[in-house]
Amino acid sequence: MSKVLALINSDHRSVRWGTVIFSLLVGAALWESVGWSFNQAIMAPLIGGADHPGTIPRLYKYIVHDEEYRLSLLQSVQLFSTGFALAVVFSVPLGIIMARLATLRVALESYILVLYVTPMIALIPFILSILGFDFWPKVLVVFLFAFFPILYNTLEGARSVKPELLEVAKSFRSSEVAIWFDVLIPYTLPYTLTGIRQAAGRALVGMVAAEFFLATSGLGEELITASRNFDMAGVLATILVITGLGITFMRIAQAFEQKYSAWRGVNR
């Protein structure tokens, strides 16, 4: 009995990966059987067959054979990257400046708190009526979804900079610019990257929402079209694509996070 327990709880690679693969196979089998037991207009299986178009074959068709779909994917990635990049570019410096200037922080804090907890999706009708249907209003939606988690985490990080380190910088006659590069940015970076990881998921929601509610485009449009045609395999395939994007972005952010928090060492 204890041997079985030890095996189950062992940290060994083979046990861990075996568990992951087994769990995924069970999930896939469940999906497959649910897919087969419903009408194809309600639910599509993973692999499928006659009368039950599968999600994986559809995904393959989309990515490999469908020029238009690839364009949609590109559109979405463009929208996401633009909004996300702008969010990073604006939120990080603002976060650090706010940590350095107490007055500015006090002035803006309540707005940030309010906007941080406001479901951004509720602002979409406003953005629509004020800015219309272009590319840039959609970018704004993605921007708003991503901006606040990054700002919030950056601010928290920059505020928690050890006063001892600022004292050292002062003692060594550092300029403010040098303080940013030697102390504030390196110290804040791990916090910012945590914010970026959180923001990636939210920005993805923003991307799909923007493509739904403003001029439909990209993966959002693919999703709506497939759903109108009761093409559940298409819907699920697109959802997998979006999920894939999300996982990719988060992995990238995580890799950066690990790289730039290495100095925290064992004291993490």
Binding site: E164, E167, V168, Y187, R264
Partner: peptide, 9 residues
């Protein structure tokens, strides 16, 4: 400094 004040990064 007593706290060393080294930059950990």
């Amino acid at each position: 400094f007593q706290h060393f004040g080294l930059f950990p990064w």
